[in-house]
């Protein structure tokens, strides 16, 4: 089949503003969108610029806005999106070139969450693992899947409206630690998220949950953080 792509282009070295270029390319319906982008770059236009690495949905490099929705180019097949594609950078982060955005603001929000394990408890005397029941482990299982691709944060209308909002991905990271029975810094993280740019900015639009390529129920996780904040219980 013939696939037509309309791709967002912006080269800061030569362009005053962005434009779209169109490409037509042979594809099969089981091709990944990333395969098609690779062939456009390889065979038609070497200047087309985008990030990619693992090509199977685990590294989070190629989050793009495809036909108006955020998805990973490597985890989306042509049959899922049709023969006419509009490919744009994810929204809400500064555009560096073509489909590449500046990820620094995103990772800065991540770093505000104390995104690391905190425990002052001594390690077990035998030097072995801390114990954790399977029941305690499963509580935060889903949020450990996050690959920091930014599909959720850059699909969020609250984030588009206010770039100071920490955004869904940062809250998912906080959730992963807040609900880990071994961690001791839940109260501090909840305090951070109680600030103006924390969970209060979530208006449950559910875009994040729909956008997540890892099928994390992001809105639910944010709700659990809000609940913990209100009840003081985790």
């Amino acid at each position: 089949m013939q696939v037509t792509l309309k791709i967002f282009r912006y080269n800061p070295e030569t362009d005053k503003t962005f434009h779209y270029d169109s490409y037509s390319i042979d594809a099969v319906e089981t091709d990944r969108v990333l395969d098609v982008l690779e062939r456009v770059k390889g065979e038609q236009d070497g200047t087309l610029t985008f990030r990619r690495s693992c090509a199977h949905g685990v590294c989070g490099s190629d989050a793009l806005r495809i036909n108006g929705r955020n998805m990973l180019a490597c985890k989306t097949l042509i049959k899922d999106v049709g023969e006419t594609l509009t490919v744009e950078p994810i929204l809400g982060l500064p555009i560096k070139k073509d489909l590449i955005v500046d990820m620094e603001p995103f990772f800065n929000n991540y770093k505000k969450m104390m995104p690391y394990f905190v425990s002052s408890a001594p390690i077990p005397a035998d030097g072995k693992e801390r114990l954790q029941s399977p029941e305690d482990r499963i509580i935060f299982d889903e949020t450990t899947k996050c690959i920091l691709c930014a599909c959720c944060t850059t699909s969020c209308p609250s984030y588009w409206a206010n770039g100071e909002y920490y955004g869904p991905a940062a809250i998912v990271t906080a959730h992963r630690f807040i609900f880990d029975s071994r961690d001791e810094a839940a109260a501090q993280r909840l305090q951070i998220l109680a600030e103006t740019d924390g969970v209060a900015r979530c208006h449950t639009a559910y875009n994040c949950t729909e956008a997540c390529p890892r099928e994390i129920k992001v809105t639910k996780a944010i709700g659990e953080v809000k609940m913990a904040m209100m009840t003081g219980k985790v």
């Binding site: 690391y116 394990f117 425990s119 390690i123 030097g127 072995k128 693992e129 801390r130 114990l131 954790q132 029941s133 399977p134 482990r137 935060f140 299982d141 450990t144 992963r176 630690f177 880990d180 071994r182 961690d183």
Partner: peptide, 17 residues
Amino acid sequence: YELEHMGLPFDRTPEGR
């Protein structure tokens, strides 16, 4: 064990190991 002490969320046995 060191990775676990860094917080790595291994799956667990019924005994919590």
